[in-house]
Design a protein around this nucleic acid. Structure first.
Lengths: 242, 242
DNA sequence: ACTAAAAGTTCTATAGATAGAAACTTTAGT
DNA sequence: ACTAAAGTTTCTATCTATAGAACTTTTAGT
């Protein structure tokens, strides 16, 4: 039964099995210091050849999650770590506070003056926007790509800051225009080829695609951003209010 | 540059390219009736051999997204469809209304009397729970696996209904106990081997792992569920209240 | 020292993935 | 009918993935 899912997929068996073993390690089934079932036992569990298991183990060895030792077994060497460091905020107040702690590194990719292409379901567009693409990273790990539009006159008022600093804290600190409300939409997708290259994950890996729109008091769009986060970097935590 | 992401991944090139082409079709870059760039053009774009492109195209042909035609080109045959039918609710009021429309089919997998295993960060556990695992589907398509715990005495009061119907609407219709509040947490993960088998997606495909906890007025956990949704079935839409 | 357990190595064999090239067939336009 | 465009087929070649089996080496326990 477990094997059916493996065999029906075209991805090589050893890659799939490596993922299964990785999930067991990351999910706490096996902890640092534990010894995995023997290669023979894993062969039987997954109904595959030993060489397939060994290739899967080798991948995890290269990632320093496992250390196979002849005569002894395969030991888990993975260091437990917080793999969900970033919380996606679900209230405006929290969004304002989002970067009060650890500030990510910012790498700007490109910029121009243009407007969001899609049709808004609500609010109205200003005449022109500043468009910027950037990457955020922490501890050298890139975790999201942002494509954002800032209303042009707002941008020009603080041009230097917008280019160097995080944009949301700036927007929220402005007295004019005042951010009256915000919307955020999210879907889960497979990583596209371009983003995969930019943030060093694989095509098809899980990502969150988030759209954030900030409106002023006249319901004009002040900020419109499409953010792609690597899926393993974020979590959402919602208090479902009555 | 585009090719670097392909080449550094161990998944076969034709599978990766199929995914890229699939995303372009699903993302609206190519619509039904459009003709793709020629195989030679795609070969050049991705810097791969023609046979690799042809294998990618063949996969999409089998999925009825593409129809290659000799002398003419490769035409998009994909039927546009709503690929995000289910909205994950982010307020309690919406959660109550969640199933007022189209009701999913329910397949029960297993049941027993046991308690949630993990340590709660808040609230308190009752003495015993009814545990049930089930699958939801719509139009024959399985889209989530649920592992839920219902407080035992609550369950026993409406045992028949809980086994047959959707659980949340029942819980919300109860006068005793009253649901006082709820929390919902979500992470994005790669599909595990078991769930992949249950809902017919691939190991490693994007999924949402959602935990929902409902509390009564005494902050006792009445309902505790871990739900794994296929990532392409859901969307979140958050009005960020000030 | 002996034994059992377990990983590592070697061997044979087949199928799949990938590359590159050339020739053939089909379609559409002139 | 001719030409250009584009997919299809065929060929050669190499590498990778997978299977199964047997043997060797290492480790740990008695």
């Amino acid at each position: 039964m477990l094997n059916a899912a493996l065999k029906k997929n075209k991805v090589p068996l050893y890659l799939q099995i490596a993922e299964v073993l990785r999930q067991r390690i990351n999910g706490g089934v096996w902890s640092q210091g534990d010894t995995l079932p023997s290669l023979n036992a894993l062969m039987e569990e997954f109904s595959v050849s030993k060489v397939t298991i060994r290739q899967a183990v080798k991948l995890l060895q290269e990632d320093e999650l496992l250390a196979p030792q002849r005569g002894r077994g395969t030991v888990v060497t993975a260091v437990p770590k917080n793999r969900r460091p970033l919380r996606v905020e679900t209230t405006l107040a929290d969004l304002i506070e989002m970067y009060s702690g650890d500030v990510p590194d910012v790498l700007n990719l490109s910029e121009d003056f243009s407007s969001p292409a899609d049709h808004l379901t609500e609010g109205r567009l200003a005449e022109e926007y500043f468009h910027m693409r950037r990457i955020h990273s922490r501890n050298g790990e890139r975790y999201c790509v942002i494509s954002m539009y800032i209303e042009k006159s707002v941008f020009l008022d603080s041009e230097e800051r917008f280019r160097k600093e995080l944009v949301l804290p700036i927007l929220f600190s402005l007295s004019t225009p005042k951010i009256a409300r915000a919307r955020q939409k999210m879907i889960i997708a497979k990583c596209n080829i371009e983003t995969a290259g930019l943030i060093n994950i694989s095509i098809g890996d899980p990502v969150a695609e988030i759209r954030r729109v900030l409106y002023d008091e006249n319901d004009t769009v002040i900020y419109h951003a499409d953010v792609i986060y690597r899926g393993d970097y974020i979590r959402l935590d919602m208090d479902l209010r009555p």
